[in-house]
Design a protein around this nucleic acid. Sequence first.
DNA 1: GACCAGGCGCACC
DNA 2: GGTGCGCATGGT
Length: 290
Amino acid sequence: MEWTHVITGPYNFNQALKRLKIDPLLTLNVVEETLTLPIWIEDNPVTVTVKQVGTFEEPMFHIQVTDHEKVTKEAITEKLTHLFHWDTPLAAIADFFEKTELAHLFQQYRGTPFVCDSQLYGSLMKTIIHQQLNMAFAYTLTERFVKSFGFQHEGAWFYPSPEKVANLEPAQLRELQFSQRKAEYVIDTSRMIAEGDLNLNELVQLPNEQVIETLVKIRGIGPWTAENFLMFGLGRMDLFPIQDIGIQNAMKKFYDWEAKPLHAVMLEKSKEWKPYRTYASLYLWESIET
DNA sequence: GACCAGGCGCACC
DNA sequence: GGTGCGCATGGT
């Protein structure tokens, strides 16, 4: 089935795609402005292709999915609306930042949406895998993980189930060049999910502080991972991960500082960006893309 | 070859 | 409750 979905502009789909392009697991075409995504509707893996057919000011999307008896257009549109921030008032956010020190960035990247990870469990695994590594190698490791243990469905790569990962041995991840510790974090966290000791879908209901409190109790998940999961997994709007080396470097560059900022300085500066600190984070990250 | 990457836990104090 | 260190490997 296929249909068209219209949203309120501005919306810079192309800028979002440029960012997603570094993920080797995604199928996308920046010129054609198409993206094929693995998503879950209830317990059904669904591959959906989204193509931008409108403009920056009047955005419109052509959505295509193979017919599925258990999946409705409405459910998919709702999911995509969440993932792509289609209902986020990007013009109002740009106006909000107009009176802040980041005004210049929000003019430069006006209309650029924050795009979430399309799989909740996958988002947590990806974030653990990405800890401390440079982006290129982090994506390589994640790609090996998904292509070794996940599955391909109608051209999109889906993460394996937590149950499957729970039954892996660390040695199987070491072969992919995971560190021993990272292998344990991924497997042990998956085991908690598989055994019902951690329910990611229940976290959707909780406020940020309780999600962080829950997640950081788990060995291998610290503040950076919890905050990134809140942003990329749950799509929360007001996170500013001060441990993030990318944000530290971006602030150093933006403010023309000699060295990376202290955490206290980052907290002080970010106060005026509430309640949209996720967008401040995104646009700072954008500002150091090469 | 050193040093840093979209951190974290653990061993020490 | 703070500080130092190891982790695997790629990029600079």
